[in-house]
């Protein structure tokens, strides 16, 4: 790693003073599991590394009447093991439990998980000056793309690697962002950006801003949710495709449905059309099948990843069938 100045900020209000507007110059350090990898590979050479772990309001889980308030620097293992999250927010507990490895969940934070950079092997390799690094080509298009995007891709075809994000979006979470202009809150769904809107970053966060808290509304009564993650290797792997599914079932009818896919698009992919197909109807096999078809209708695979379309459809079907039988 290249030399840098380590800045340990203990008060949130002081934070913006130490973050640079230019994204290359400063980096936020929380769990460090992604940041150190990027720095070791020489993909990031910040002059300042700003530790935010000692800022008290960024840590911890608060269970309120409205829902959860999770500090961005809360470790993933705390979320995974939180009894209320396990009982009332299963999709979130399952998603977080599926992240990386026990060691990395003890280090990584929820804010870091949402803000992590893509795992695309071209992005991660020093040899490839790709679009995401300011270059002029996406190596995946004519290269090796079995893990790449089937939805929302172009001109860059990364997939968003977060497991927590699809679950949180399904739950209707919002994120609080803090920067020089103060605080703002946005729905998590609107936090992420497609490459066509922003090639260099995956979200709306300015380099001198930080995610401070995540608010998760308490699911309405009779809500069921789950997270299905498909990976090639069960021991430590990112999702090839994952499904965050949530339904509110009243008298056999779907009052509300949420379906967010991970690992298939440059952002966590909300399948609104599929949700509409499910809402107002019973969770029948036919409906579920229609929803699965609708979710992938716009899929536009590259030459090695068409299997993900089949996979995603099957996982969606499996997820809602399981919710129906739960």
């Amino acid at each position: 790693m290249f030399p840098f100045e380590y800045i340990n900020v203990r008060e949130l209000t002081a934070l913006p003073d130490y973050l640079e507007k230019d994204g290359e110059k400063s980096a936020i350090l929380a769990g460090g599991t992604d940041l150190l990898g990027l720095m070791k590979e020489g993909l990031l050479k910040p002059r300042k590394v700003v530790n935010i772990k000692q800022i008290r309001e960024l840590r911890g889980i608060r269970d309120t009447r409205k829902g959860l308030e999770i500090g961005a620097a809360t470790r993933l293992s705390e979320i995974e093991q939180h009894p209320i999250i396990q009982q009332q927010y299963p999709v979130l507990a399952q998603a977080v439990a599926s992240i990386a490895t026990p060691q990395l969940r003890n280090m990584g934070t929820i804010g870091g998980n949402l803000c992590q950079r893509p795992r695309c092997w071209y992005f991660r390799g020093q040899e490839y000056h790709c679009l995401k690094k300011g270059g002029d080509m996406c190596y995946a298009v004519d290269g090796l793309n079995k893990y790449h995007a089937i939805l929302g891709g172009g001109p860059c075809y990364i997939v968003h690697p977060s497991d927590a994000a699809p679950a949180l979006i399904a739950l209707g979470a919002t994120v609080e962002i803090f920067g020089p202009q103060g605080k703002r809150t946005v729905p998590l769904e609107e936090f992420f950006q497609l490459p066509e809107d922003n090639l260099l970053r995956e979200n709306i966060l300015a380099p001198n801003e930080v995610v401070t808290r995540i608010f998760v509304p308490r699911p309405e009564a009779e809500t069921r949710s789950l997270y299905l993650k498909f990976r090639e290797r069960q021991s430590m792997d990112f999702a090839i495709t994952s499904v965050a599914a949530l339904v509110q079932l009243r008298n056999g009818k779907v009052q509300k449905a949420r379906l967010v896919l991970g690992g298939v698009a440059p952002i966590p992919w909300r399948a609104r059309e599929a949700e509409k197909i499910l809402e107002g109807n019973s969770l029948s096999a036919d409906r579920i099948q229609q929803a699965a078809e609708a979710a992938l209708k716009e899929a536009d695979p590259l030459d090695q990843n068409a299997y993900k379309v089949i996979l995603a459809r099957n996982l969606i079907r499996k997820a809602f069938t399981q919710l129906q039988n739960a």
Partner: peptide
Amino acid sequence: RYMDPTTGTMVNPNYESYKILGAME
């Protein structure tokens, strides 16, 4: 081992994407 056709380099020279068997398998 995956070799990139454009640059002639290995795209997965690490334990993350060159996947070897672990406890779960």
